[in-house]
């Protein structure tokens, strides 16, 4: 039997970590407990962050939104700030797992798991989010691409937790898109995903683009070449096809049980082509 500790505050958490420095810290348990109960992982003790209310808060500070790491996906789906200000992230969260998984899983957990297929990651990368890392000594903020160092790997230190994620409100972007390709419509791991933020002029010229892909590289894939290629061009099949080629050249997908590399490469580019219709739909509304 291993101990499971449920600290009620961050102060208490530090004391728990002092007592059990080898303990594994978890929030929703949708990833870690699957591994533990299936014998793939045998932590000495568990610390569950579920009861620390201060880690669940969502609020605005200046031009940024701070999302507590232990905010559940369901909680964020119901949060007006996330829905209105961060629509690409909101859409990504809505496609995670299933309702019970979203009730349990947290955004911090999704980030710390650092899966190449993590659904919140492409929008967070596209919005240049930063993570707030907290330890007894204080906090530091790290851009998310620096935090995630590889598949399943982060630069989180011992006795440090991910306490929040900071997202600058993506002002100036008037198209916020996220699409996930999974093998079924729920309970699916993404095979390819793409977050896209565009600033479109009224006449349909792309002024600025921020793009990020999941599941096509060891970590989230950004493609500045494609972003540059789109800048100043009309949003149309022709310009998007050119950008899509740059994306396909840049990705480094793997073949696994869910899909082969060729499929991921093709679709990573193809997803860009949808943006014309997304823009049209936006106009229609």
């Amino acid at each position: 039997m291993r101990e499971v500790i449920l600290p009620g505050s961050i102060e208490e958490l530090w004391r728990c970590l002092d007592d059990k420095p080898q303990a594994s810290v978890y929030a929703g348990g949708t990833d870690l407990l699957v591994k533990m109960y299936n014998g793939l992982f045998d932590p000495e003790a568990l610390i569950c962050l579920d009861r620390i209310e201060e880690l669940k808060e969502v609020g605005e500070q200046g031009g940024s939104i701070r999302i507590g790491a232990c905010a559940t996906h369901s909680g964020l789906l119901e949060d007006p700030l996330v829905r209105k200000r961060l629509p690409a992230l909101w859409k990504a969260i809505g496609g995670i797992g299933s309702p019970p998984v979203r009730n349990m899983g947290t955004i911090g957990g999704n980030i710390c798991t650092a899966s190449p297929a993590g659904d919140t990651l492409p929008p967070l990368y596209a919005m240049k989010a930063e993570v707030e890392l907290l330890s007894r000594e204080g906090s530091r903020r790290v851009p998310i691409p620096e935090f995630i160092t590889g598949p399943g790997a982060t630069c989180l230190k011992r006795a440090e937790i991910l306490s929040a994620v900071w997202v600058k409100k993506p002002e100036g972007y008037n198209l916020h898109h996220f699409e996930k390709v999974g093998l079924r419509s729920a309970l699916a791991c993404s095979v390819v995903s793409m977050a896209a933020l565009l600033r479109l002029r009224p006449e349909g010229i792309v002024e600025k683009a921020a793009l990020a892909w999941g599941s096509v590289a060891p970590t989230v894939f950004r493609c500045p070449e494609a972003e540059e290629a789109l800048a100043g061009k009309p949003l149309c099949a022709e310009s998007l096809s050119k950008a899509a080629e740059l994306v396909r050249d840049g990705v480094s997908p793997i073949s696994d049980l869910r899909a082969d590399a060729d499929y991921r490469r093709a679709v990573a580019g193809n997803l860009l082509l949808r943006l014309v219709d997304i823009a049209d739909e936006g106009k229609g509304r």
Binding site: L183, R184, S185, A186, L257
Partner: peptide, 9 residues
């Protein structure tokens, strides 16, 4: 990894 249809499929 062996997937069967959900209510959305």
């Amino acid at each position: 990894n062996y997937i069967i249809p959900t209510s959305l499929d």
